[in-house]
């Protein structure tokens, strides 16, 4: 962690009102300590076989971290996947796109899921659908790490780029050309969106994000879950 610049997120002003599509300056990368992420990685590194499902574009730092853990990483490039989800015309089409975006080998089911901030960019009903699909692919009792925008009324309109910084922090390259309203979802509300998961730990970060460790409640069927009726729109 030497030399790391630890400071507030540039988009955690708090006092500003939500102004979607407001132009904002491009910011330099910032580093944020993530205590729960550190615990998760520590447990994963000290345990047995670890399979990580990572919802972030591949990065040198991420691969280096997981290389030290001798684990397997299934990579979902979420910004690309989000663009695909937005083109879904029906609920069935959305599910098909979700399944196509997530690499899956039944012999290697993920027991750690790194969501970073991607849940912030999905409507509540779509969060349920995406994470239900993820649950079907994961090992029983898999753990999931997520960052939810909470205290700040706005956040970058596009997902940020997250790269692990050592084992206890993350470097964030915000894309703040445009801002949008943040979901500000409370833990209870998130739990309602994710009936297959329970919240293990939650911690408020100084950046205004809430850091979550969630856990799959049990074994899920590998078969795709039923698709809800109606059209799901990814905002």
């Amino acid at each position: 962690m030497q030399g790391a610049r630890l400071r507030r997120f540039p988009f955690s002003g708090g006092g500003r009102s939500a102004r979607p599509e407001t132009p904002a300056p491009v910011e330099a990368p910032v580093t944020e300590r993530l205590p729960l992420f550190a615990e998760l990685i520590e447990r994963a590194a000290s345990g047995g076989r670890c399979v990580v499902l990572d919802f972030a574009p591949p990065s040198q730092a991420g691969i280096a971290l997981f290389n030290d853990m001798h684990c397997r990483v299934d990579i979902v490039n979420f910004p690309q996947a989000l663009a695909s989800f937005k083109q879904a015309s029906t609920a069935e089409d959305l599910v098909r796109r979700i399944r196509a975006a997530i690499p899956h080998d039944p012999a290697h089911r993920p027991n750690v899921v790194l969501c970073w901030d991607f849940l912030n960019y999905l409507p509540r009903n779509v969060i349920s659908v995406v994470m239900e699909q993820v649950a079907c692919l994961c090992a029983p009792h898999a753990q999931m790490h997520a960052l939810m925008a909470y205290s700040s009324p706005e956040m970058p309109a596009q997902p940020c780029r997250y790269t692990p910084f050592g084992r206890d922090a993350v470097e964030i390259r915000p894309r703040v050309e445009r801002m949008r309203e943040s979901p500000r979802m409370a833990p209870k509300e998130l739990e309602r969106c994710l009936p297959g998961y329970s919240i293990d730990r939650v911690m408020m970060l100084r950046s205004g994000f809430q850091e979550y460790i969630l856990r799959l409640k049990g074994a899920h069927s590998d078969a795709p879950p039923e698709v809800p009726e109606g059209v799901l729109t990814v905002g």
Binding site: M69, C71, D105
Partner: peptide, 26 residues
């Protein structure tokens, strides 16, 4: 596709869609 090696290095900006297996036994 899948990338399987005990040591893997990746430069930022590379496009990788799939898995990276770094467990020597696997």
């Amino acid at each position: 596709g899948a990338v399987m090696a005990p040591r893997v290095s990746l430069e930022d900006g590379a496009h990788l869609r799939g898995s990276v297996e770094m467990d020597p036994d696997a």
